[in-house]
């Protein structure tokens, strides 16, 4: 039986996981990286979004055997030098968070977008977070927060 070591937020973790455990379960239950949330656990809601080699994926339906030799970035990996990432700051200050459950997933989708496209239009922002369901905010405050983080005009 093989145990997987995974590279997460720049650190290598020996997980003791079986190949078919979901990355999300390994992150939350084995590594206690509980920033990534379990919403639907079937790839619909986006609250488990993490980046795999820089691209957003759904960690709840991603098995750990497909993660080895690759790099995972979770919301815990965003702050630099103890300071929250600008996306985290704007989401907090502009009412992009209410219950907070979708927030880490939204932040990771937004981070992936801004890495590829630093000044996205409102349509591009909405397209990028279409896979993240939020029941509280109605999305407007989230879009405004992401526009602020990107430094683009808020409508």
């Amino acid at each position: 039986m093989e145990h997987y070591s995974l590279k997460i937020n720049g650190h290598v973790y020996e997980t003791g996981a079986e190949p078919f455990e979901s990355l999300l379960d390994v992150l939350r239950e084995k590594l206690r990286l509980t920033g990534s949330k379990k919403g639907c656990d079937e790839g619909e809601c986006g609250s488990c979004t993490v980046l795999l080699d820089g691209k957003p994926v759904l960690s709840c339906i991603l098995m750990v055997s497909d993660v080895r030799d690759r790099e995972v970035l979770t919301v815990e990996g965003l702050p630099q030098g103890g300071e929250p990432h600008p996306i985290q700051v704007e989401m907090t200050e502009r009412g992009g968070i209410q219950c907070g459950y979708c927030t880490p997933g939204i932040i990771m989708s937004a981070y992936a977008l801004l890495q590829e496209n630093p000044r996205p239009s409102e349509d591009e922002i909405r397209f990028a977070i279409a896979g993240n369901i939020c029941r509280c905010t109605g999305y407007s405050k989230i879009v405004e927060a992401l526009q602020a983080a990107a430094g683009t005009p808020i409508r």
């Binding site: 790839g43 957003p56 994926v57 759904l58 991603l62 989708s109 990028a128 896979g131």
Partner: peptide, 9 residues
């Protein structure tokens, strides 16, 4: 198809 995340898988 699905969402950005789903299409990456």
């Amino acid at each position: 198809i699905g969402s950005v995340q789903l299409r990456n898988m």
